[in-house]
Amino acid sequence: MSLDLTLYDKVLENRVRLQIMSILMANDSYDFNSLKELLDVTDGNLASNLKSLEKEGYITVSKSFIDRKPNTRYSKTDKGQKAFENHLLALEQLIKQQYN
């Protein structure tokens, strides 16, 4: 079996970014603080990874205020979803290849 590495996504090689995308796959949207609690990472680390996902066009950001406190929500884009699915396929192929 030949290995198709075009599906493998360098952006999602980062563990935090891959986990952010996993969460956004299972939910319509998620807010910053809940992401932070779930992933157990620092504000700075999370923010920079979210920024790079946004730059890549994988997620969209919407800012609003709840009780005058800022609430930043993130959701996946179609492009992000496709990239995630492809990345999973690539991981699957990598695993299969090592079995052969």
């Binding site: 986990q19 996993s22 939910n27 779930l38 992933l39 991981l91 695993i95 090592q98």
Partner: peptide, 22 residues
């Protein structure tokens, strides 16, 4: 990446999907 790391990574994806929605 070796087999174990890959499986661990997929396990983490699954875990996050479940933890974030349940």
């Amino acid at each position: 990446m070796n087999q174990q790391e890959l499986l661990k990574e997929i396990g983490q994806i699954r875990n996050m999907m479940e933890k974030s929605s349940k």
